[in-house]
Design a binder for these strands. Structure first.
Lengths: 336, 336
DNA sequence: CTGAAAGCGCTTACAG
DNA sequence: CTGAAAGCGCTTACAG
């Protein structure tokens, strides 16, 4: 690996000037800059991040904490973070905290404290007080995606509004016997996404003057299979349901498959709407409220990088966008 | 952040001894070690990776190059790499090379050369000569997953054997009109997985004395939707087919859905088998040849870490395991 | 087994 | 605008 000294020698300047020319910090004459750039390029020189970060305190690396890697939503967010980070020359190092308590402690107690990263993005992670404190103690920009957090800068989508939009859309199609697939309490810790979506669902019904029947809600686990089972229970117990709002696209897809298995036509017999913007949505013709997870990741990355560039304090981020995407799984209520 | 000096002071030893005690390198008396460990723990001291790596040349960080993040197979491999790496105290930094040629060049020309990682794992990436050379020039352990590479240590599954296993299983169920969903040439660069699976398919048919009809092969793109379309074409053109071997689980799932839409029963009217071990396989009752992608990631991580621990030269890795997982999508050929 | 000290390869006040 | 030099926080021969 060529070092800064070789570049300095070839360019006929000091290493200080090489450093300035390459980093863009400090003054360098145009001619010196040119010679440095040419020399660096000739030699294939790349600044050593270990030396640079020790000297400067900057790593140009962002830590990303995720709870899962193999669920579509999280990989989409991660793709966004990665793309935005690379665009600005940042690396990302990944901390998959899994469900193992020890691994998780280790991440907060050790991994994140190695001074390997300049900032942290926590994706849809329910942080306890201790973990939050450790994050704050890092003394670096920390951004959370997914749910308001009292002590952290957070990118959140307004889950209630999302659910209202989905539900209201079903109502606008004439539906009133609308069931909801939510998630069991185990999935409701932290940002309480299921609760909030359920609340939005109920608010939309109430606003339309539709009486709420608790039986209309079934709990699942955010998977296709769980959605499938929940939809089956719904169809068993209330054959009169004409529409289902599922709290995730995976569950909505499960519901579509459950309906088909019973010979129900979607949307003629049953309208189904989900939430997320899942890649399989188009294939299944699923109407959904898209949350643009890729863009969520990009925004989080851009936000921390902006903070690192010293662009002032953390701006309170505007709520994340969402959008109704109408496809074939929803239609006007059957009029028989 | 507390530094090594504070630990040394509290433990009543030199920083050299702290370093030795914490890293496990070199001799330290039991009593000194104990005091150091206690002091470090009291102070919440974590070795600064930037200082440590500059001094030692070791980063305890592995670079992982992936072509996609949001396809299940890759996230499963990545999960495995992450789990194995964390278990050994390693971080991983992620390079998602996407399809943008410039991003890709940047990864090989700059990102990987920052001295941020001790080793590199390339997951299912078709590397050209130049990229291979750059990887080799890094002078660190490099392991590739997915397909033999003449110049790189590679973890590969024997794709032909995988396809033979799947096909032979269908034959053992009495099928002889077996169609195959492969992938178009665009997906056949690099490790040529589609070609190799197709070859295995054809070999198995030949071995069983079954005549091959080129019309029995349709090309898709490794997605559910592509598999769906390909299966539809197969069912149009050869209604006599009793079984389909799809070169991936996603495509096999698409095929199952296509069959159902036509009112065909799976497996009574049509047996379908895939390859991968996709998480949705169980839900769809898909028979598949599982490739254990999670374990592939773990093995690659363990391999590079072993090399980094100086456990001798790279052992030629044994071929990756695969296994037939029989579920409900395959059955004996219909006897009408 | 232990410590003093050099050195890892940069960055950045500081002086000019 | 530029360079000499200190310093970032560790690790590791080296000497004892």
């Amino acid at each position: 690996m060529t070092s800064i000294d070789e570049v300095a020698r070839l360019a006929g300047v000091s290493t200080a000037t090489v450093s300035r020319a390459l980093s863009g910090r400090g003054q360098v004459s145009a001619s010196a800059r040119e010679r440095v750039l040419a020399a660096a390029s000739d030699l294939g020189y790349v600044v050593s991040s270990r030396a640079s970060s020790l000297a400067s305190g900057r790593t140009r690396n962002i830590g990303v904490i995720v709870p899962f890697l193999d669920r579509w939503f999280f990989s989409a967010v991660l793709s966004g973070v990665s793309a935005a980070a690379m665009r600005q020359g940042y690396d990302i190092t990944l901390y998959n905290i899994t469900t193992d308590r020890d691994v998780r402690r280790e991440v907060f107690d050790t991994f994140l404290r190695r001074q390997r990263v300049d900032a942290v993005i926590a994706v849809s992670i329910k942080l306890d007080d201790d973990e939050t404190q450790r994050l704050l103690d890092l003394g670096m920009p920390v951004v959370a995606i997914g749910g308001p957090h009292p002590r952290l800068e957070t990118f959140t989508v307004d889950e209630e509004a999302v659910a209202q939009l989905a539900t209201t859309y079903l109502i606008s199609l004439g539906h009133s016997d609308i069931a909801h697939i939510s998630a069991s309490p185990a999935f409701d810790t932290g940002f309480r996404v299921p609760s909030r979506r359920r609340a939005g669902f109920e608010q939309a019904l109430a606003a339309a003057g539709i009486a709420q029947d608790p039986a209309l809600i079934e709990l699942a686990d955010f998977t296709v299979e769980g959605g499938h089972r929940a939809a089956a229970r719904i169809l068993d117990r209330m054959p009169g349901a004409t529409a289902i709002f599922a709290a995730s696209d995976e569950m909505a897809i499960g519901a579509i498959l459950a309906a088909r298995e019973r010979g129900l036509r979607v949307p003629e017999d049953l309208s189904i709407i989900g939430v997320d913007g899942h890649e399989l949505g188009a294939f299944f013709g699923l109407t959904t409220v898209d949350q643009f997870p890729l863009r969520q990741g990009e925004r989080a990355a851009d936000a921390v990088i902006r903070q690192l560039s010293g662009a002032g304090a953390a701006a309170v981020p505007s709520p994340l966008p969402f959008e109704l995407t109408v496809r074939g799984s929803t239609g006007r209520v059957r009029s028989d």
